[in-house]
């Protein structure tokens, strides 16, 4: 059955792609970039990684003050301890991540063997499970410590999501993420794009809507509203709830593919997580 489905995808996908309506990821990216550079002409590409603080001077000032004593620092420290503490079997994270903790820029990536988008939180839990440790929860809790530490060590690396052309399933995953981004959902009928593309820079009540470009570079994020550091997928959940849609499971296929699309949009922007947001 599964093989049949895969075969169908493999056959159907080139047909779909042959249609003129389908834009390549590079086309999507350049359309989105040109939209944002017209909308915020004073903001340089890499600055978009600072979210709302890239486009609003007033909130930027208080954010810069916060960054002097970053609220995520204790999480980075806790993550360092996790990194250096051996599992029960004597091994540790460093045995799974041979290149060291600073590898966040290698995620998300297409895992051809597993046929899915591999994210850093998934890789962390795969490491734990392979070593007989209990997996961590994907939205809240100590996964954010280890993520904070690894991301902190990845700062300055550029986002570089690749959609390999030798596996149509990767393109399908990208398309699914894109569809998710532009589809309206929930009782309030908003798409992600309604707020973070079409109305980025506008006020919703007294909050400014941040631009989609650069959205992924700063995660995990310390949010004042949460009072703690949280994952990208936790934030996805919050957004879905706000439009009155039932949120999906963190690290489920929907959010993984969404992350794949959204991170691709930020290719070339430097990772700057963990970061602080309102």
């Amino acid at each position: 059955m599964k093989r049949l489905f895969t075969a169908a995808v493999v056959i159907a996908l080139p047909l779909v792609m042959a249609g003129s309506a389908v834009a390549s990821p590079a086309d999507d990216s350049s359309a989105i970039r040109s939209y944002f550079s017209k909308k915020f002409p004073a903001v340089e590409l890499n600055e978009f990684g600072n979210g709302v603080y890239a486009i609003d001077k007033v909130s930027r000032e208080s954010w810069e003050a916060i960054e002097e004593f970053p609220p995520y620092e204790t999480f980075v420290d806790a993550g360092e301890e996790m990194w250096n503490t051996a599992f029960a079997n004597g091994k540790g994270y460093k045995d799974c991540f041979a290149d060291g903790p600073g590898v966040a820029h290698k995620y998300p990536h297409w895992d051809k063997e597993k046929g899915m988008v591999m994210t850093l939180p998934l890789a962390i839990n795969n490491c734990r499970k392979a070593n007989g440790e209990k997996p961590l929860k994907y939205a809240k809790g100590s996964i954010n410590d280890i993520l904070s530490y690894m991301t902190y060590n990845s700062r300055g690396h550029k986002t570089n999501v690749v959609i390999p052309s030798d596996d149509p399933r990767a393109m399908a995953a990208y398309e699914e993420g894109k569809q998710f981004y532009f589809a309206r959902r929930g009782q309030l009928n908003f798409s992600c794009a309604s707020c973070h593309m079409q109305n980025s820079g506008n006020y919703i009540r007294s909050d400014i809507l941040s631009p989609a470009l650069g959205h992924t570079t700063g995660f995990p994020v310390y949010r004042s509203k949460w009072g703690t550091v949280g994952t990208l997928h936790r934030r996805f959940k919050g957004c879905n709830k706000q439009v009155r849609a039932k949120p999906f499971k963190p690290q489920g296929q929907e959010y993984r593919n969404l992350e794949y699309f959204l991170t691709y949009m930020s290719n070339g922007l430097e990772l700057n997580g963990p970061s602080a947001r309102k």
């Binding site: 109305n199 506008n202 006020y203 919703i204 009540r205 007294s206």
Partner: peptide
């Protein structure tokens, strides 16, 4: 409505 529209008598209105 105030999330997106200015209305006389309402505060912190949005600009969408």
């Amino acid at each position: 409505c105030l999330a997106c529209h200015m209305i006389s008598g309402g505060s912190n209105a949005g600009t969408i």
